[in-house]
Design a protein around this nucleic acid. Sequence first.
DNA 1: TATGAATGAGTCTTCATTCAT
DNA 2: AATGAATGAAGACTCATTCAT
Lengths: 200, 200, 200, 200
Amino acid sequence: MGNSDIRKPVQKRSIETKEKILKAGFELICEKGYYNTNTAEIAKLANVSTGIVYQYFKDKHDILIESLQTYGSSVFYPMIKISEKDFEKYDLDTILRNMINKFIKNHKISHSAHKELMAMVHSDDEVAEIYHSSEIEMTDKLTKIFSDNDIVTENMKEKVHVAVNLIDDLCHEVVYHKHSSMNYDVMIDIVVDCIKNILK
Amino acid sequence: MGNSDIRKPVQKRSIETKEKILKAGFELICEKGYYNTNTAEIAKLANVSTGIVYQYFKDKHDILIESLQTYGSSVFYPMIKISEKDFEKYDLDTILRNMINKFIKNHKISHSAHKELMAMVHSDDEVAEIYHSSEIEMTDKLTKIFSDNDIVTENMKEKVHVAVNLIDDLCHEVVYHKHSSMNYDVMIDIVVDCIKNILK
Amino acid sequence: MGNSDIRKPVQKRSIETKEKILKAGFELICEKGYYNTNTAEIAKLANVSTGIVYQYFKDKHDILIESLQTYGSSVFYPMIKISEKDFEKYDLDTILRNMINKFIKNHKISHSAHKELMAMVHSDDEVAEIYHSSEIEMTDKLTKIFSDNDIVTENMKEKVHVAVNLIDDLCHEVVYHKHSSMNYDVMIDIVVDCIKNILK
Amino acid sequence: MGNSDIRKPVQKRSIETKEKILKAGFELICEKGYYNTNTAEIAKLANVSTGIVYQYFKDKHDILIESLQTYGSSVFYPMIKISEKDFEKYDLDTILRNMINKFIKNHKISHSAHKELMAMVHSDDEVAEIYHSSEIEMTDKLTKIFSDNDIVTENMKEKVHVAVNLIDDLCHEVVYHKHSSMNYDVMIDIVVDCIKNILK
DNA sequence: TATGAATGAGTCTTCATTCAT
DNA sequence: AATGAATGAAGACTCATTCAT
């Protein structure tokens, strides 16, 4: 009864309108969460009418999904966007510590966005799928960085994935200060050693 | 003007009613998520009227929090409830593989519950706090298990925490089949080696 | 987060809708009282949906306040709307008796409205403020009427205010038949004499 | 279906229970208003169970009415309780000024009670009736005081009633500071003169 | 008599979505 | 293509009243 009425914008103006909505939606959802953002607010921030939203998107959920497809990876795995050059030809220890620092820095920037989107990852299958794609992309990227630095072993995919998890968890620990009794410097050393060991 | 009018049940009948609500709330939230569960449903499943809910709980959110305090840890860290005896005096490799298998088995049981609650962990600070307490508890428990098996090194807290993260991530990977291209047996080996290395 | 999202209607259609709600709200509140009127009824009488009410008004109380600002004075002090010409160049006695008769007539028309609104005056500070503004306006108006009829003395503001109270009380007495044992004709004479004396 | 199940307490304990409820109800209604007081609060303040309330009173409204019958006049017309001796054999001017001062003092004490009850007077017919009885009682009392001081004229009932109104309005004006631009000392003089004139 | 647990209809308010213009 | 007014179902929460004990 209208599913196919969703407009696929081709004209420049249309495309811009859709993008404005997408950007506004993403911004608000990241800031306040999906359930605490309503379509009126999205339309308002996008500077469009409430009605028009439903010409570009099937429903509110559709905004979430499309905005994640467009902007999600930069929050989920900010490293994805980072050029390999950042890690050029250092020793592994330095590469890892650089990486961890970048991760932490990036997470700090998009603190609430990350939180809100991770919430959706856990409760929404479509969101989860997008997240997991980013994860794969990230793993591939890192594998390439390692191999560019002559770090190559068997089962790289699995190893790198474990490494990514380690870094990710470490980073959350540091950013969210989850456990006050933890010594983060010690933890960083542990994680770096651990990854070096895995990739040996 | 009523804030403190929340009833602290003492009579047997009262206690049972509160527990019925708590159980029903937890069940539904785990199944369908917090935002997709309404108070009427909770009351209905608990076989009580909607009104009584608000004599035992400040609001809907309060049901979430209290139910997590009561039942949460069994979902967040099902291992918490497990006795140390399960791991008595094996070698570390065996202990770890036992642990991983138990983790995976437990997670499989409460698949959707875990998903929904992890969503809340990321979007709700109070839930996050409860989760992090469970995490600490889990870490302490494991530390004890290791030390009972004569595995003691410096910075145990941090090390065990990293180990817990590794196991947890691995377990999610396996249970949710997040990435079809991963070889899980390989991954388990990597994780076990990794932890053995950390604790050496 | 929405407080300021209350629509200030500019389009004709909008203005009409808001006015319909205002009118319906005022009507029902006057008839049945604020606490015995619910928003659904207001919407129904206004021939709009319940939702739209909250785009024009912050909450139910806001309807009360705005409707009073719009229609209130005609109930509180129906005389406010009356032109000075009604009392032109009679002697004071005639002016006062005309006034009292008009007052009584007007009160009889909006019997229940007056009752319900006076109730709110006593229990709601914002309503009280609106009422007191009307009172002042009324006093000023009367002062002007008196001075137009060459009735000027010291402390006119206070004197007129006392006179207004006298007329108002008299009028309530007559309209509400509060005390069956009172002889109203006698009372009118007393009040008229009294005011004449004050203004002498 | 139960109307006649309301208990008319005869035993001492019963009477006390009923009185406790009445007192608590009156207190809360005076403080917060009828609509903002609920039966649970009344029961709590009275130190009885919620259920028992309905054995002594038909419904919540009944508490209001009975409590007014018991305690109302002291709020409506605090002067009622005042002995004639307070005004013994002064000249009329002094008597009136004493009276006004007492009125004002009493009103200041039960400020919110008066406001809340006057609200009910205007919206509830039964309350209005009780109020008007107090008014009559007050008028009679004053008439007696005047005649004891040899002040007797025709139509005393009506005259005294007008005088009471004048004092009452003056008192409200002073206590509630309704109109900042009014000079209250002047107003008191006007009212006193006015009443003296009426009773001449 | 008394308790206080339980009821459930009723109320305000929100918001995704539709529709007239 | 666009607007923004309008819809109405749904949800959280309250409270006078009843009832099992």
